[in-house]
Computed example of a mutant assay.
Amino acid sequence: MTTKRALSEAQELLFYAYRAFTAAPDALLDQRGWNRVHHRLLHFIGRDPGIAVNELLEKLGVSKQAVHGPLKALVEAGLVETAPDAEDRRVKCLSLTEAGAQLESALSSPQFAMLGEVFAQCGPQAVQGWEAVMKAMAKRIS
């Protein structure tokens, strides 16, 4: 059984780790007056080019209103392009432009480097444990 103190310490570690994980991309986003929502949009659109807006909203677990402003900013900045779906022209699909892919890479590269370094430092068994914990936590919202 895990004590309240141990859970509190785990919570703090998660807060500190997330702060370290987001520091570099947050600084880059701040230069544009943007935030983590913009990064999440770039990430998920980049991972699934041609994703329908409704699919994106479902993946993020947010409303259309929550992403309207940030998505509009990314489109206006020439980082995301929209196109009608080939089968249903009422469906709007999203893809990164070349500039959008470059920005997404600049935002994610420090995070990939950090994960790679930490995974190498901690070893495969720790990585498997971390993945198990992250997957179990992620399932709580699905």
Rank of each mutant, 00 (worst) to 15 (best):
A77W: 05
E9V: 12
L115Q: 08
A138Y: 08
E87V: 00
P110K: 10
Q128F: 07
R90G: 00
S8C: 01
P124T: 14
Q128S: 15
A17T: 14
I141Q: 02
P124L: 15
E131A: 15
E81S: 10
A120P: 01
L74R: 04
R19M: 11
K139D: 13
A24T: 14
L60W: 04
N54F: 10
R89W: 00
G123Q: 07
G61V: 06
G50N: 03
G116V: 02
H43P: 03
A83P: 00
A23I: 07
Q65A: 14
C93E: 02
K135M: 15
E76G: 00
E76L: 11
L94I: 04
L107Q: 04
Q65D: 09
L107N: 03
Y18H: 12
H43Y: 13
F44R: 11
K92Y: 01
Q111W: 03
L29Y: 01
A99G: 03
K92Q: 08
A73E: 13
S63Y: 05
F21H: 13
P84E: 10
G100A: 07
Q121S: 09
A132E: 15
C93V: 02
A24R: 13
L41W: 03
D48H: 13
G69N: 10
Q31M: 05
Y18A: 08
P110V: 10
G61H: 03
F15R: 12
D85M: 00
L56M: 08
N54P: 00
L42C: 09
L57T: 05
A66C: 02
M1V: 04
F44I: 05
Q111D: 05
L60C: 02
R40M: 11
N35I: 03
M1I: 03
R89F: 04
L42E: 06
E76R: 14
D26H: 06
D48G: 01
V91Q: 05
A106T: 13
D48R: 15
K92E: 08
W34Y: 05
S8A: 15
V67Y: 06
E117P: 00
F15K: 04
F112D: 00
A113M: 07
K72N: 08
I45N: 01
A24D: 14
Q125C: 02
T22N: 05
Q31A: 09
Q111K: 15
F112Y: 13
A17D: 04
V118R: 11
L96Q: 06
